[in-house]
Amino acid sequence: MTEQSTEGTIFHSKRYTSWPSMTEDIDAGNLHAAFILAPLAMQMARQGKTKVKIVHLGHRDGTAIVVPTDSKVESFADLRGTRMAIPHRYANQRILVERMMAEYGFSEDDLKLIDYPPPEMPAALKAGAFESYIVGEPFAAKAEMDGFGRVLYHTKDIWPNFISCVLIVTQDLIDRDPALVQELVSGITASGKWLDEGDERLLSGLVMESASNQDDVDSGKVIVPDEFGRTPRLQAAVIAAQRRYYNQNPELLKFVLTKPPDRVKYTELELARDEFAEIQHWAEKLGFFDSRPVTEDDPFDFLDYCDPRFEQGRLRDLPLQDLASAAAEGAQ
């Protein structure tokens, strides 16, 4: 959201279409900050080709296991002997499934995991390519909104505060410009706090449709349809739906952000040692670090892949319009 403000650094959001092209760009030195799958981030840190550090989370939860609406599956145990699509081999979604398989006493053959591109998952579920899938939003909400899928579990029910993607920056950037990293992390913390706790004040650069005029259109202001609503989450849905961010249908993002509101969470984004220890434990167990196994002589610990110091910084203020002008707009 920082592109909305008029001062400070401009953070450009660059939308990739695959994880490898992102990691290759980081290794090539073209890219210094990214939201990336948590275990993939650890693996990059472990391989050490490019030194990267996790500095913050972008959100929590926001992942779901989806089954067809007419499916008889009522709990994870019913998935025995079926196929499930996962977004990536090194995704935390896979760790979640493996963790549940262990919990429910599944053997490796009891659930066949298939690597599948997330955007294709809803259609493939409908076509019967597999019996369930686990994915980050908005591709779970998509099946729900279109009516052919239902959520078996939200992550809040099976691994509360689930971590899907994390913010990594290169060590190079941390050394070169720690203030810039600080600005980025503080901005994300502030945006998250606003998303979960903010009031109906509009972000600067936004205008309600009924209060907008030709000048607003010409100056590129983001216009919020009145019937859409103006809570921070709905403002965010309108912003994120734009082409330069997610390029998604705003109604779908509205669904993701509000049905129910704790489907995705944007507070408590601080890095917690025990949560990463759990992810690392499973990553080791599943062989994510096989190219450089973790041993006593060659340890791998929280501070080898996380740098939580930027979370201590001063919280910054988001550029919000004051309520007076919002009320004036409402009266118009």
Binding site: T9, I10, F11, H12, S13, K14, R15, Y16, T17, S18, W19, M22, D25, L31, H32, A33, A34, F35, I36, G58, H59, G62, T63, P87, P118, V135, G136, E137, P138, F139, S164, C165, L167, L173, L180, L184, Y246, N247, Q248, V256, V264
Partner: peptide
Amino acid sequence: LTVAHLPVT
């Protein structure tokens, strides 16, 4: 600064 992401949460 460019921050990369995929359109998945």
